[in-house]
Design a protein around this nucleic acid. Structure first.
Lengths: 340, 340
DNA sequence: TTGAAAGCGGTACCAG
DNA sequence: CTGGTACCGCTTTCAA
């Protein structure tokens, strides 16, 4: 069972014209008389003709389809990113095939291959937290395949990248905690190999150094799966607050980490913001409804998706290979509420 | 610039075999000797051969790609649904093309056409709140195209459908409010033409009738865009609480409506649960962090996606046209917290 | 057991 | 301005 669709040949037969005439009419070629074109167009409309994308793609045309490989959609940040991506993809009459890596290197690699096998014209990627080996991505880029990394980007690969201003976001957040009088600031973050982890850590460290506050390495906790596994957050938080000299503030580096930490701190009955100041990187839709309303570092996910996709189409539409790659930074926003 | 990939012909040339022999070897045809197949397989692996899906599809094969048309991803319910869908799609080596309708009939129709033009094998649909005219969907079904509706399903179309047990979910929630002593229960819901709206309204009404509580029609508020437009929630809530005899409880029929109402009630400084009991249909990830922790009707979105996709593949893989359509119900869960 | 060739729906080049 | 045709990569029927 398939929806029978009309082809160029059908129209040619109906009208008693040659295939090429019909094809050219439909493409509105200048070499066809207006009358003929009119007749063909009318017939095409009537029979609801739609060009077969598979055939076009096979013939070397673009598939007008881009791939999106990210960690997972049930995460407000990524959900919002897709909006920005689609807004520009659709304006160019492209569709988006989304694949998720669920923070697994294996799944990421497998879905990358699936995506490529679909003749997509380009690919937007945010790395899984497990990914260390980048060779499959490097190969793609080596053959000139259009790729743009966003959010979690690889250091060692030369390509277009779009990231949040993680350093500044983290720096400002930490500084804000310090201004509020907190002095023992912990940082719970994702896998240390991720770009976002490094940048956010640096901002945190810089703020502490700049303020002349003593740095306690025990206050830095890594969650290898970015909090995808709840137990790793639990372990980190427990360790943090079992310390002889526990922290009086916490900067959480991601959505999942923020929510997870928040829950656990509530469970431990540590009052926020009195005994603990909390700031989290989060694109949660309504942090003001939390108790207390949560101070967050917000990323403009939509904008990030938009910018990344614009860069991607630049690559896709470029005639000559691009060698001058750029990294764009999207500003973050510190949304001050009552959790610190 | 495209990643040059090896074809069957290339392999045939390398090995000095005919195209068909190579093609058959790769498909592990019984008519080819084991030795030949072994040689071909080895060569294919070495050169990292991947069949061209476009060519296969053009030749009448399945595209191994299904479409998903829903209202919008930045909504925890739909984000979770995609997980269930992918879990079964991927197990069948299919990919998912996601398109959003953003609660607009026009966008829905346009994206439907885009999707169909991509030779997808089947389609999962959750209707936009604006959609009244279903003829484009009906046409698809008439030609035997595999379609499964989920969540927001059309009444008038005969097709497989998967829905939450909206009636029961709503009934139980309302009953719970009544048990807690609330007597003037309002209901804020989506567009009246949506299946979920009707079913949830019925559950609400039944609970009120069953309990012998007077029904006040003024307590029922429709938001035509399901709260996609914040102002419509604002208007509804304001009207509700400007009533001479305002409600003492509220049942919100969707994620967006729940959050929006919650915010507005906070703004109006109406204490929950003392002056107002609140329950919302919501798949929000952490309603326990709200103030107060929110009592919700939760839907098993993952399961819904899974079941819908299983039905879809039944259609896709079926040899003969299916006429016996079924509607599956997924149980909802009342998660009692402190907002009522 | 293997090979040759037609054709899926379009595109584009070459003639006329 | 219009028609004929080779070809994109793969599947499949018919021959050998």
């Amino acid at each position: 069972m398939k929806s029978e669709s009309i082809t160029i040949k059908d129209i040619a037969n109906i009208l008693g014209l040659s295939y090429s005439t019909v094809a050219r009419s439909i493409k509105d070629s200048y070499q066809i008389s207006e009358e003929t074109k009119e007749i063909v167009r009318k017939c095409a409309k009537e029979h609801n003709y739609r060009p077969n994308l598979m055939a076009q793609t096979l013939k070397g045309k673009k598939s007008r389809c881009i791939g999106l490989l990210l960690s997972q959609i049930p995460n407000n940040f990524f959900a919002e990113v897709t909006g920005g991506i689609e807004s520009v993809a659709f304006s160019k009459d492209n569709m988006v095939i989304i694949a998720q890596n669920y923070e697994s290197y294996k799944t990421e690699k497998r879905n990358l291959e699936n995506l490529i096998a679909r003749s997509i014209d380009g690919l937007l990627i945010s790395l899984s937290s497990e990914t260390e080996d980048l060779s499959h991505f490097q190969k793609l880029i080596n053959v000139g395949f259009p790729v743009v990394f966003f959010d979690r980007v690889p250091e060692s690969i030369k390509a277009h990248k779009v990231i949040a201003d993680n350093f500044l976001g983290s720096y400002e957040a930490t500084l804000h905690l310090i201004k509020k009088g907190y002095k023992k600031i912990a940082h719970i973050t994702s896998a240390p190999n991720l770009s976002i982890t490094k940048e956010r850590l640096e901002g945190y460290l810089k703020a502490i150094t700049d303020s002349g506050i003593p740095l306690n390495r025990k206050f830095i906790k890594y969650c290898m799966h970015g909090g995808f596994i709840y137990e790793e957050i639990e372990k980190a938080i427990k360790e943090l607050f079992s310390l002889n000299n526990p922290p009086d503030a916490l900067l959480a580096a991601s959505d999942r980490l923020t929510i997870g930490s928040f829950k656990l701190i509530n469970k431990l009955r540590i009052p926020i913001p009195d005994q603990l100041g909390l700031i989290g990187f989060s694109n949660f839709s309504s942090p003001e409804l939390f108790h207390p309303p949560l101070t967050t570092v917000r990323q403009d996910a939509f904008e990030m998706g938009k910018v990344a996709t614009e860069l991607l189409f630049q690559l896709i539409e470029s005639k000559k290979p691009i060698v001058d790659f750029q990294t764009k930074k999207i500003a973050t926003e510190l949304c001050i509420r009552n959790s610190c």
